[in-house]
């Protein structure tokens, strides 16, 4: 394999950080502190994850693998929650949405034989699914918040006409689901033409035949479509009621 990165080359590549730092100082962007913190965090977090994964892969214990997947899902939910300020129970909703979307998608992949239930496959794939589901849910929450604000009058009028909460919100809910799913659909359209995404790039890097590598990327495209659509629909259908009070009035 041609994998040549070592501590010395990594150290020299750190010069690239100086480029970003230099631009920040030169243009007085005030980002220097954030760049330093970001770089330090990235290095520390990745080293920890590297050693942790090495350990988990070696032990190859079912419970440890599940615990790691649970940890990934919880963190994804926690981050999705932060994008839905004002939505009650956003953590519980995100947790359920990411758990189901990740679980169903992984289940299909394992049962179809696309991946094996071994930690070195389950954990990275869980991370990819959960993080895409997280981004989709975050976008959907933001869309719900802004639409319930901007289209307040329309919602009030539907309620005044005797609409149920779902009838009053359905246009907003659909738009929010669409918002959550659209980045995945857009990137599916340009995959291979604009970007060579992480999965296939990584395999090609590791010396795998590109024709074999793209099969994995095709699988990734399928699984992200499933994950973002399931995540968005579950989160939106559970979250829209939050915008109403017990008297079925818009809050």
């Amino acid at each position: 394999m041609n994998l040549a990165v070592n501590n010395t080359s990594l150290f020299l590549a750190a010069m690239l950080v100086l480029v970003a730092l230099g631009i920040s100082l030169w243009q007085k962007l005030g980002l220097d502190r954030d760049i330093v913190i970001g770089v330090v965090r990235a290095v520390v977090q990745l080293f920890i994850v590297g050693y942790l994964l090495k350990y988990i892969f070696r032990v190859n214990n079912l419970w440890l693998t599940l615990a790691m997947m649970g940890f990934i899902i919880f963190n994804a939910a926690w981050n999705a929650k932060k994008r839905g300020p004002g939505i009650d129970h956003a953590l519980a909703i995100s947790l359920l949405a990411i758990f189901v979307s990740t679980g169903v998608t992984l289940g299909v992949l394992v049962l179809s034989g696309a991946i094996k239930f071994v930690p070195s496959q389950m954990i990275p794939i869980s991370g990819m699914i959960a993080s895409n589901s997280m981004v989709a849910i975050g976008l959907a929450y933001r869309s719900l918040n802004s639409q319930f604000h901007d289209q307040r009058q329309g919602v009030l009028e539907r309620l005044a006409l005797g609409a149920g909460l779902l009838d009053a919100s359905i246009a907003i809910v659909r738009e929010a689901i669409r918002t959550g799913m659209s980045p995945t659909i857009d990137s599916a359209k340009t995959v291979g033409l604009v970007s060579l995404p992480g999965m296939m790039s990584g395999l090609i890097f590791a010396g795998v035949d590109p024709v074999r590598a793209i099969k994995y990327q095709i699988m990734v495209t399928f699984m992200l479509l499933s994950a973002t659509s399931l995540g968005s629909i579950i989160a939106c259908y559970l979250a829209y009621r939050n915008f109403y009070n017990e008297q079925k009035q818009l809050e």
Binding site: Q153, A160, G164, L165, K248, Q249
Partner: peptide, 13 residues
């Protein structure tokens, strides 16, 4: 039920 009520007492904006 507020929804059934609003079908009987209808508000125009």
């Amino acid at each position: 039920d507020p929804i059934m009520y609003r079908r009987q007492v209808s508000y125009c904006f």
